[in-house]
């Protein structure tokens, strides 16, 4: 038999007849190049089959709703509280206590600042349109 070539993948995939398997096996016994090719093909096949199965994004399949966008703005009272805290700080009304400084609310901090970053470009864009000659 000549070099089996394409039959090597078919051998790995169980797509050969018993006669073909016999002929290919016989050839492999005496051909180091085809044994190396079989090994390389098997490695590529294994690599492909090892790829993870991915979950489709929500919303593709029936009964799965798209994930709602996260709300970036805090409720009004949150802003009021944050403003009052800032005012108190600027007036020097907040003093250190024996227990040490209160822990910072990092979640609230990042939300406020993210919200400002999101709002600011919009404000500038509107200003640019209004103030344009």
């Amino acid at each position: 038999m000549t070099h089996p070539g394409d039959l090597l993948s078919a051998l790995l995939d169980g797509e050969l007849t018993p006669e073909e398997i016999g002929a290919v096996s016989e050839h492999l016994d005496m051909c180091a190049a085809c044994r190396a090719e079989l090994e390389a093909t098997a490695a590529a096949r294994t690599a492909l089959r090892s790829l993870p199965v991915l979950d489709p994004p929500p919303g593709l399949l029936p009964g799965t709703a798209p994930v709602p966008r996260r709300r970036m703005l805090r409720p009004v009272w949150g802003w009021v509280a944050a403003g009052a805290a800032a005012l108190a700080l600027s007036m020097g009304l907040v003093l250190g206590t024996a227990a040490g400084p209160a822990p910072m609310n990092l979640d609230g901090f990042s939300e406020q600042h993210t919200a400002r970053i999101l709002v600011q470009p919009g404000v500038q864009a509107v200003r640019a349109v209004v103030e344009a000659p």
């Binding site: 070539g5 394409d6 039959l7 090597l8 390389a40 093909t41 590529a44 690599a47 492909l48």
Partner: peptide
């Protein structure tokens, strides 16, 4: 199909 699969895997490798 047999040829495409084998050549595809060879190129991948």
């Amino acid at each position: 199909v047999r040829s495409r699969i084998h050549r595809g895997r060879s190129m991948m490798r």
